[in-house]
Design a protein around this nucleic acid. Structure first.
Lengths: 261, 261
DNA sequence: ACCAACGGTTCAAATAATAAACCGATAAGT
DNA sequence: ACTTATCGGTTTATTATTTGAACCGTTGGT
């Protein structure tokens, strides 16, 4: 990787749970020489991707990201367009709805909507990326990627995040094959023991899957009727978002969804 | 400037009016060798700051900017927090309200709100940056910067954008001195002949001016009562936004605003 | 069939990135 | 008050990366 990539990777060190980082910490976390890190941070600050907060001299994400995002949304409405649909999905199901996009081979949550139906909910505040093998969103996306991409993901160590996390590549392949046919991914307690989730893929204008929309529910209150209802509502949301993006659902999935909903 | 800076400057070539750019064009616009440009673009794509659209192989801003912006907003609510106030300002004045932030020594519009009161309005859709000397926002911000910053800006060639654009550094300094006292910048036809605008500075937690909020009005329908009303409303909006940001208005300005409103 | 321009690649030469040591300041421990 | 450790930031020769002219295969227009 080149210098630019290293500099940009610095941005990934800043997460929701660790938004402020000092120079030395940053160098350690990024495994960079302090002087190197300093130079890179300087350049990122010059552009406004990072900024130094006046008091403690720590760094955080800068204002330029807002400008870039505003411009991206103006040309390719993604987040803003999907937000209302996501909120509707959360309201209709009484659970947490979220949308994720593939970014540089990593699946990242981009927007979350909560329901106020229950006092307990699945929170996504601290989630910076989703493992492909242990989330319904991950499986939903993976089921529509190239063989090379799938192989690369399943070759990585598959962390057992909960007792019911599937970590056998062969079994995962079976599940993916099923999802590719049905267009819906369901996972029970694979990410966290008490969380059931369900996801459908989202497609761009070329019919490529670029993300997923998902409902994450508290397992203990999931009746089979609710699951059926959630599945139908989720498919509707998936259709809407893909349509809003100017994308197109592949015919096979469109028909599979039609019978499922 | 280092390689990282060059790569990031590529992002600035993408504007609202030119959102899709091919490799050769990009190299020309950025004055880079095509091979160099290609490598940098690759790295930006790898990170997701750019993406290549499937059909014409052109590039555009990528999905990563959304993730970064979401995280920044989560920690430092800036745009989302100010948006309602901006809309209220637009409604109350019947004109276009916008907010700009200094990013890497350039003043960039970050959010715009339009009024539906009139069929004609000042549009900001295609504006990527604001000249310091020829906009009320620019002057409002400049009036509260360090002498070094002001000198750097006034040393640059001051483009005469309209017949009434002030391009004499000495005269501009006089105006800045006045704005520093009053806390309000007003400009008539300096950016476009038929546009009057008014702006107040916005401050961060350290009392540093980091941006401005402004009203841009069609000059022909500005009565003196409306100007007075706009000034009062604008000052209110400036106070609110600064407060929401956790910023603090310097005492001198606070009192100047009190007498003006 | 031709030509020009496109996106992308190659490789020697030029330039920029790197890392160890260092600096002054600040804070904690004794 | 003295030591010690760590902080953000700087300097330097060494090193590795970036650079750009030329080149390739493709595409679209004439």
């Amino acid at each position: 990787m080149g210098t630019v990539g290293k500099a940009l990777e610095l941005l990934d060190v800043f997460t929701r749970s660790r938004p402020l980082i000092g120079l030395s910490d940053l160098a350690r976390l990024a495994q960079l020489n302090k002087a190197t890190c300093f130079r890179l941070v300087q350049e990122l600050c010059d552009y406004g991707l990072l900024e130094q907060v006046g008091s403690s001299r720590e760094y955080r994400l800068g204002p330029s990201v807002l400008r870039l995002a505003a411009q991206r949304e103006a040309q390719v409405p993604t987040r803003d367009a999907a937000m209302p649909i996501l909120q509707e999905l959360a309201n209709a199901t009484g659970e947490t709805a979220h949308m994720s996009l593939i970014m540089a081979s990593v699946l990242r949550p981009l927007a979350v909507a909560y329901s106020t139906a229950y006092a307990t909910r699945v929170t996504m505040e601290d989630t910076d990326s989703l493992p492909f093998h242990a989330t319904s969103s991950g499986l939903a996306v993976l089921a529509f990627q190239s063989e090379a991409f799938v192989a690369a993901q399943l070759d990585k160590p598959l962390v057992k995040l909960a007792v019911r996390t599937e970590t056998n590549p062969a079994n995962l392949r079976d599940r993916l094959a099923h999802i590719t046919k049905s267009g819906v991914a369901e996972s029970a307690g694979a990410y966290e023991t008490d969380v059931n989730s369900m996801a459908v893929p989202l497609f761009d204008a070329f019919g490529s899957c670029i993300g997923a929309v998902s409902v994450a529910a508290i397992a203990s209150r999931q009746s089979s009727e609710q699951i059926t209802h959630t599945r139908a509502t989720l498919i509707q949301a998936g259709r809407k978002i893909t349509k809003l993006w100017g994308g197109s659902v592949p015919p096979a999935i469109a028909t599979a969804w039609q019978t499922a909903a």
